[in-house]
């Protein structure tokens, strides 16, 4: 399981590394008061996470590569990537 925080419209950590061909449970804690939408075209994932709450989603198994994700409601600041090795 990997945990990511959203704080002041930033992901922390903004880069996570996961093993290839493995299913991973991602828990995203939105510590801001405002909602955010976790979105990634490359990962085919999209999920609204309300303010001060936690969202759970699953990614993988994935081939090695770099998969960017962003917060759709604050795309300028909320950016990150999943590195699959």
């Amino acid at each position: 399981m990997v945990e990511i925080n959203i704080k002041q419209h930033l992901f922390e950590p903004s880069e996570i590394t996961i093993p290839a061909n493995t299913k991973i449970k991602l828990r995203i804690h939105n510590l801001d008061a405002t909602p955010e939408e976790f979105e990634s075209w490359e990962l085919n994932r999209e999920k609204v996470i309300m303010g001060n709450s936690t969202g759970t989603l699953f990614i993988g198994p994935l081939p090695p590569g770099i998969y960017p994700f962003f917060g759709e409601f604050n795309p300028k600041t909320a950016q990150g990537k999943v590195i699959v090795e």
């Binding site: 299913k23 490359e42 085919n44 994932r45 999920k47 989603l57 699953f58 990614i59 198994p61 081939p63």
Partner: peptide, 20 residues
């Protein structure tokens, strides 16, 4: 089906192709 994969109710698989 994509949402059900995200929720782990359906198995996620490698992409068949990439037209991005």
């Amino acid at each position: 089906s994509q949402l059900l994969m995200q929720a782990d109710f359906l198995p996620s698989q490698r992409p068949l192709w990439n037209t991005s």
